[in-house]
Amino acid sequence: MLLDNEELKAQAREIIARYPQGKSRSALLPMLHLVQAEDGYVSGDGIGFCAEMLGLTKAEVAAVSTFYTMYKRKPTGDFLVSVCTNTMCDVMGGQTVYNVLSEYLEVGHDETTADGKITLEHAECLAACDFAPVMTVNYEFYDKVDPEQALATVRELQDGKLPQPSRGARLCTLKQLSRQLAGWSEDRKDALADTGIGEATLAGLRLAEKHGVAAPVGDVELNTPIRVEKK
């Protein structure tokens, strides 16, 4: 029972304390991430834990947890592989990447491999269309993937390796990552720094830099307060 876990209860209270007094229900989304960090999905036990800690009914908690895509309803692998198949990524080859991985892993959408290691899903737009097609593993980005790269990445995961994402921190398990989703800071040394920025992000800037273009600057006195004549 998660409710027997005093440390977890203390963490739940820590989440509640982030929100104004009397508004503890705001803690529900991070708390659902917290129980996923324990169980790897939102279990019945996890729903009961959130309900008890927040003074809600289990039905109220389940109504919320089933609304959001990131709360998984059955045990999920250590690595969640998400392939964007929204229009842009689809057109640029994302659907093919998904199909190849699905065939190789012998699982469909939101299904986990027999060894419990990898869960595959097709994702809606991941807000990285300039890197299309994109794939994420535990939400860290692998940009401009083709089927071969995607397969190689997944094979490495199967071999117990942690392939470095193009953008995002080094991989950890989905349970470990869920603690960050619950609001805790990155605690792995250098993980904040080891993300790549991605060339598409810099495309316009590189061009401006190469040709010596900069934005004009305004002529404003730093130490003078802003004053506006009342109209």
Partner: peptide, 27 residues
Amino acid sequence: IVIHSGAGAYICGEETALLDSLEGYRG
């Protein structure tokens, strides 16, 4: 400042759905 992570729902980019979500409800 509190950084509040959502949980996967495009609708929460709509400002009032976002508020409901922030308050711990379905967005």
